[in-house]
């Protein structure tokens, strides 16, 4: 079943008329994972925020967005707000900006869970303890009682992922969710993303520049450059046989860092 359908999405800057995302269309099926890769500044975050209708006010968008056949682009802001969290959940690129710096971490989390499930603090705490363990966060009690600036970058990132796991949304949009994680935590988190897809039938939009991770968890990939989708399709097919020059270039440059690593590691390259 088609879960999300984006048709002819266009985003531009109001003042200058400068177009940031050109005519972008894609679909997402239930249980599917779509990766968005591409150049820094190519419009990946703007595209994903457009789906949530969360872009800065100096940007405007047109195009149609359907979630389970419901037209999100026609909803009032008040109705849209209800979709965020339970139906569409976003893990932001920068953890620090996602939490209110003046409150303890738990305040925001309990509030969100209360809004969507009506849970008491106690129920929320129980649920959070479970998901925090899944993303390799130790001492959950202590973490919940800290302010955002008292947590490390990777801890904030995993805290957002934990909240998303607790919310069990229809669609999870994760913007560079593993950038601040060591390889072990990253492995756990990637495993969680794979699990929730299988268990909860949740679909994922996964923005990342880490092609290794993308290949591991995504079914489909969308390659962006300068606000345009230059190529989209099956992950394995595109990585094995890229058509567009930019995709070829992207894959080749990782090669340069990779080759060096292989040289250092000699025979011992893990797979």
């Amino acid at each position: 079943m088609k879960l999300l359908e984006v048709k002819h999405l266009k985003v531009w800057e109001v003042q200058t008329g400068n177009v940031i995302v050109h005519d972008t269309s894609f679909t997402l099926e239930q249980g599917q994972c779509l990766a968005i890769v591409g150049e820094s500044g190519s419009g990946k975050s703007v595209t994903s925020r457009a789906i949530m209708r969360l872009n800065n006010k100096n940007l405007q968008q047109t195009g149609e967005i359907f979630l389970k056949n419901e037209a999100l682009h026609l909803l009032s802001e008040k109705h849209m707000q209800r979709k965020r969290g339970k139906n569409l959940c976003m893990i932001l690129q920068n953890g620090m900006t996602a939490f209110d710096p003046s409150c303890l971490i738990k305040v925001h989390l309990y509030e969100t869970l209360h809004t969507h499930f009506g849970w008491s603090e106690n129920e929320s705490e129980q649920a959070l303890m479970q998901v925090m363990e899944k993303v390799n966060l130790k001492n959950p009690q202590e973490i919940l009682h800290k302010y955002p600036h008292q947590l490390s970058g990777g801890m904030l990132q995993r805290m957002m992922i934990a909240l998303a796991l607790a919310l069990e949304p229809d669609i999870m949009i994760a913007d560079e969710p593993t950038t601040a994680l060591d390889t072990i935590s990253q492995y756990e988190v990637v495993q969680q993303f794979i699990n929730i897809r299988q268990q909860m039938n949740c679909a994922i939009i996964f923005i990342s520049h880490d092609l290794g991770v993308v290949r591991k968890i995504a079914d489909k990939v969308l390659v962006m450059k300068d606000g345009e989708v230059v190529e989209q399709g099956d992950v394995q097919a595109i990585f094995a046989n890229p058509q567009h020059d930019y995709t070829k270039y992207l894959i080749a440059t990782r090669g340069a860092i990779n080759d060096h690593f292989k040289k250092v590691m000699g025979e011992n390259v893990p797979c």
């Binding site: 990637v190 990779n258 893990p270």
Partner: peptide, 8 residues
């Protein structure tokens, strides 16, 4: 750390 690395 090395074992858990997801390479491309």
């Amino acid at each position: 750390l090395l074992q858990n690395l997801i390479t491309f």
